[in-house]
């Protein structure tokens, strides 16, 4: 593509588009290489920062419990405020577990049982039926995580998937 040429018979004004094509090509290559086809999306909110991990396995289900610096949110609905020491107020606790969390997990377990009764081909022994996902702020103390896990354990959820920010995208 030429620049500007002037001669006696014709006048041609051309814009050189090859550099922009080069930039677009590089950009497209970069974006395609980093493009993720996974439909999973996790909203972490403003006051929650996941710890960085070298884990290679990607998260395969949405978070059920999130622990930010200010509160604990269960199933994206019920919220329990945290005190300055990172724990909940004693009236929210029963035998070391969070009362509200236990109630929510129990509801989830009941709905799983209903699903199982409706569809006999599903097996409740499958580990996926006993698994919950925890999305916690990197500064969260184990005290509150223990209460949440204990609530899950009492409702027969014995496996937890801990969400982390991957250090590098594979």
């Amino acid at each position: 593509m030429s620049g500007v040429s002037l001669d006696g018979n014709s006048e041609t004004l051309s814009l050189n588009l090859y550099p922009i094509l080069d930039i677009f090509s590089i950009l497209i290559c970069f974006l395609l290489m980093n493009f993720s086809t996974q439909s999973q999306s996790v909203e972490t909110g403003g006051n929650l920062e996941l710890p960085i991990s070298e884990v290679k396995m990607s998260l395969d289900e949405a978070a059920s419990v999130s622990v930010s610096q200010k509160d604990v949110t269960i199933q994206g609905g019920v919220s329990i405020p945290l005190m300055a020491n990172g724990d909940v107020s004693p009236d929210q606790v029963d035998q070391g577990a969070l009362k509200l969390a236990y109630q929510e997990f129990k509801k989830l377990k009941t709905s799983q049982e209903t699903l199982k009764n409706r569809d006999k081909s599903l097996s409740l022994n499958n580990l996926a039926f006993h698994t919950l996902t925890l999305e916690a702020d990197k500064k969260a103390k184990f005290q509150i995580l223990k209460r949440i896990m204990l609530s899950g354990q009492q409702a027969e959820f014995i496996s937890w998937k801990l969400a982390v920010a991957r250090a590098e995208v594979n």
């Binding site: 996974q38 969400a163 995208v169």
Partner: peptide, 14 residues
């Protein structure tokens, strides 16, 4: 549509 940060998981048992 690009996802520049990815979320991973560790599985633990109680």
């Amino acid at each position: 549509t690009a996802v520049f940060s990815s979320v991973g998981q560790h599985t633990v048992q109680i």
